[in-house]
């Protein structure tokens, strides 16, 4: 446990919007195979941190290292090729394409056939098989040929997972994967995430409001508050941490109840 490799690291990572310090000097070390949760009240800068990690935003200052290699400022599509993938807080899929096509496109993205202009996709069975495997894993096989926009919300969230799964990535950044999910579906969904990541030895960075999930699944937890890292540790340590409790755990529960 103590000698796990660091796969993703940030050094003094900051992003300012004008006068607002959305993310302010974050030093984060994420270890291989961990499920590392980032929690904090609304506006703590978690989403901005995510946008920095996956390359949507470039940092005002600071560095991001992947396997010790500087990846600061690389565009999102490059990061995908380096093994970092992301799911979104608001469902983000290809609405008019079929569920199968959504996943097949994800599988194809990291291959070398993107510029084969005139070969039918059916002649590249590799991606097709990968897509079906991912769909089977996420129990979406029956819905494979339905346009993605017709899925129920829960199925769409699982489709997001299938998209990640089809890509053989090392690191998943999950931004509130259970957002908008009916509460009775949440445990099953997170169990699926947990099973999938353990099966594939994925490193997962998770932003989540549901404290039960965070406490039960996380290997480590980082707490953000007003753009800064307030505390970091195992779930037990965080739960005991008085500073965390005093500073804002209360407000967070209020947020969660809204």
């Amino acid at each position: 446990m103590e000698e796990k490799r660091v796969v993703l690291e940030t050094r003094g990572l900051s992003r300012y919007f004008g006068g607002l310090k959305a993310v302010d000097g974050i030093d984060l070390r994420i270890h291989e195979g961990d499920l590392h949760s980032i929690i904090g009240p609304n506006g703590a800068g978690k989403t901005t941190l995510f946008n920095l990690l996956c390359g949507v935003l470039s940092p005002t200052r600071g560095q991001i290292l992947l396997h010790g290699q500087d990846i600061t400022g690389l565009p999102p599509y490059r990061l995908a090729h380096l093994g970092v993938g992301r799911s979104f807080q608001i469902t983000n899929i290809f609405p008019t394409l079929s569920v199968f096509e959504n996943v097949r496109l994800a599988a194809q993205a990291l291959g070398r056939d993107n510029f084969r202009l005139f070969t039918p996709v059916t002649r590249l069975p590799h991606y097709v098989e990968k897509a079906y495997a991912a769909l089977a894993e996420t129990e979406l096989l029956e819905l494979a040929h339905v346009p993605a926009q017709q899925l129920s919300h829960g199925d769409k969230r699982r489709l997001e997972l299938a998209i990640l799964l089809a890509q053989d990535l090392d690191i998943w950044l999950l931004d509130e994967p259970t957002a908008g999910l009916a509460s009775e579906l949440v445990p099953g969904f997170m169990a699926l995430v947990d099973r999938m990541r353990k099966a594939g030895n994925k490193t997962v960075v998770l932003v989540e409001h549901n404290m039960n999930i965070v406490m039960s699944l996380s290997d480590r937890i980082s707490v953000m508050h007003q753009g800064k890292l307030l505390a970091e540790g195992s779930p037990q340590e965080i739960a005991r941490d008085e500073a965390v409790q005093a500073a804002y755990l209360g407000t967070m529960y209020m947020d969660a109840e809204q």
């Binding site: 290809f94 394409l97 096509e101 097949r104 496109l105 194809q108 070969t119 996709v121």
Partner: peptide, 14 residues
């Protein structure tokens, strides 16, 4: 119907 074409549709969608 090619891999490239499906990426084009994907672009349009999202």
């Amino acid at each position: 119907h090619s891999p490239t074409g499906s990426v084009l549709s994907a672009l349009r969608d999202n």
